[in-house]
Amino acid sequence: MAFLRDVSDRFWNYVSPRKTQQRREKPFKVPPLPTHARREKSLARDMTPESRVRVWDVTTPSPGASVDGAQLPPSPPQSLERPYTDFEGDTIVDDIVEAINPEDEENWDANEDTIVVDESRYVDEQKHIDEEAERARLEAQGKNLRNAGWTEDSVFLFQKLGMRGREPLMPRSWVDDFPALPADLFTTKLDKAYIKPALDSDRSDFHAQKALEELFQLGPRARDAVLTKAPIRTPAYHIRMSIKKYNKWAMKDAGIEPVWRDISLFEVIIGSTETSSNDLQQKMLLKLGRLADLWSEAFALAREVRAGEDDTLPSLPTLYGVIASHTIMAFVSYDPSAETPTLRTVAIFDFGQEGYDVWNTFAVAIFIIHCRNRMMELDLLPEVQPQSESDPDL
Results as ranks from 00 to 15, higher is better:
residue 242 S to V: 01
residue 253 D to W: 01
residue 252 K to L: 07
residue 234 T to N: 12
residue 269 I to W: 04
residue 239 I to F: 13
residue 251 M to W: 05
residue 275 T to L: 06
residue 237 Y to W: 15
residue 260 W to S: 03
residue 240 R to V: 13
residue 233 R to W: 09
residue 254 A to E: 02
residue 262 D to H: 11
residue 238 H to I: 09
residue 269 I to R: 11
residue 256 I to D: 01
residue 259 V to D: 04
residue 254 A to T: 02
residue 244 K to M: 13
residue 271 G to T: 06
residue 252 K to R: 12
residue 276 S to I: 00
residue 234 T to M: 09
residue 234 T to Q: 11
residue 266 F to K: 05
residue 246 Y to P: 00
residue 244 K to W: 08
residue 249 W to Q: 04
residue 253 D to M: 03
residue 269 I to G: 06
residue 241 M to C: 06
residue 263 I to H: 06
residue 243 I to F: 12
residue 258 P to W: 00
residue 258 P to Y: 01
residue 254 A to H: 00
residue 247 N to D: 15
residue 249 W to M: 08
residue 249 W to I: 03
residue 254 A to F: 02
residue 262 D to N: 11
residue 239 I to G: 07
residue 256 I to R: 01
residue 242 S to N: 04
residue 249 W to R: 05
residue 243 I to S: 08
residue 249 W to D: 02
residue 273 T to V: 13
residue 253 D to S: 08
residue 271 G to W: 06
residue 251 M to Q: 10
residue 247 N to T: 14
residue 266 F to Y: 15
residue 253 D to G: 04
residue 274 E to F: 11
residue 248 K to T: 11
residue 239 I to V: 14
residue 276 S to W: 02
residue 259 V to E: 06
residue 264 S to W: 10
residue 270 I to F: 01
residue 246 Y to A: 11
residue 255 G to R: 02
